[in-house]
Design a protein around this nucleic acid. Sequence first.
RNA 1: GGCCGCGUGCCCGAGUGGACUAAGGGAGCGGAUUGCAAAUCCGUAAUUCGUCGGUUCGAAUCCGACCGCGGCCUCCA
Length: 503
Amino acid sequence: MSLRIYNTLTGEKEIFEPIVPGKVGIYLCGPTVYKPAHLGHAVGPIIFDAIKRYLTFKGYRVTWVVNVTDVEDKLMAEAARLGTSVPKLARELEQKYVESMHALGVRTIDHMPRASEHIPEIITQIQQLIAKGHAYAVEGDVYFDVTRDSDYGKLSNRKPEEQFAGTREGLVQGNKRNPGDFAVWKAAKPEEPDDVKYDSPWGKGRPGWHIECSAMSMKLLGETFDIHGGGLDLKFPHHENEIGQAECATGKPFCKIWMHHGLTRFNTKKISKSDPEFEKVMSSLQLSNLLKAHPPELLRFLIVQSHYRSPIDFSDDALQAAKTGISTFYRLFERLERTTGADPYTATDGVEKLSDQPTNPAIAAVRDSILNSRLRFLEAMDDDFNTAGAIGVLFDIAGQINKFLDAARLETKPDEPARITAQAAGASLITLGRLLGLFLEKQAKPALADDGRTGKLVELLIDVRKMARTAKQFAISDHIRDNLGTIGIVLEDSQDGTRWRVE
RNA sequence: GGCCGCGUGCCCGAGUGGACUAAGGGAGCGGAUUGCAAAUCCGUAAUUCGUCGGUUCGAAUCCGACCGCGGCCUCCA
């Protein structure tokens, strides 16, 4: 089965064939670092991290680039408002962004180029555009001429001449030849700070919003590369303009596949900067706040649980449901460690490594069933990175392992072949999950904050409760369990004794 | 006004012409297990995929109309 990817450019799922066999170049539009990142900013990185993991698993050598736009009008305004400088603000927010991404398991980015460090490349590209008649300079500004680009609009299916008649408010014409033209270079104004004024053939100024992506992607990935991604809201104008600039400058196709992910919604609405509720909603959706309130893996799970092209409705209910769901895996991993004596997070050999030698039917059944699920997982991923379908398979596997463990009773009945099977099954599950960036490392279990004595006290209570149960003094035993429950200590009785955990 | 997308059980969410007698999760209910719970396992819900038509031997899947929701049209991940 071959990998198919939905390409916005053609509107179809296409069989993926890299430009250079065995190698894949990916560019994802990263943040403009002028405000703290919110949940929506994590969607692209999370799904592309999973995409890179999967492509790497399939044997491709992948180079993944995420830009940082650190010279831009909004940044200047925000820096002025905060009484700080643009570079200082940009570095601060970039640092926070990188930390958040790392916490979320996004660890496969190869390059994070900054716009401010690619001014020469940007200027070169603008010069190419001017030389070929695709851009023109007016009073220190340089504009891209959309009328000189015959297939401008092919990504978003727009024709510039038809575009502006019914638009909400007429476009500002200014010095532009056509209303649809856009700036590739902006002249500096005298009152602007010196650290955002760059020398250029057109005087001091700074790049327009789209040009940094064309310049940096081509520098790192070549003039034509495989995959360009970003949020659906960037399709027009940002990506359309990138294509225009890049292809007019080089005369070559810019990017083969365009992938756009869905937007995060809150109260069934997109988180939009023009929303009057924006600021209020923002603080609750700010990544740094969310990451303080919830395990990062939960947020990742929530995002990867729906298909990347669908919008994600974020709510406390959704978060709670995801939390309950993912705990199925955590419980299973604990159970595996308990019953096999091996930490599934460090295991490597999955069930596919178990021999086909005739063995007992239960072992053969769980092995075959997991092997089959593994295939379904890969099929889902091959179908336009259907992470939602893939997670469904993960739940199936967890059920299969639990069932096997229920039957094998390893807690009370040592059985080496069954133990090895359980261990391998767990490794298979974790390995597949890691293709989605899940189960990267063991979750810190909620624990009692103390010097160890409280734990001993809990053990003592469990011991007393056991005496009560033996004597059928259930009022006493239930009193102990119920009241420990109210302070977040959950008791679970089983054949091999009573376990407790903190919630 | 133009362009694009979506509408699947109580909720979320896969599936996009025949292997669908429509994954999976959450909630609910029933059962196994348990002294009772918890955890785990098993079972249970859409004769139906917004509505109405059409194409087809066959449609949740393709086409058309309509209804509803959302996105973009130079702030956006």
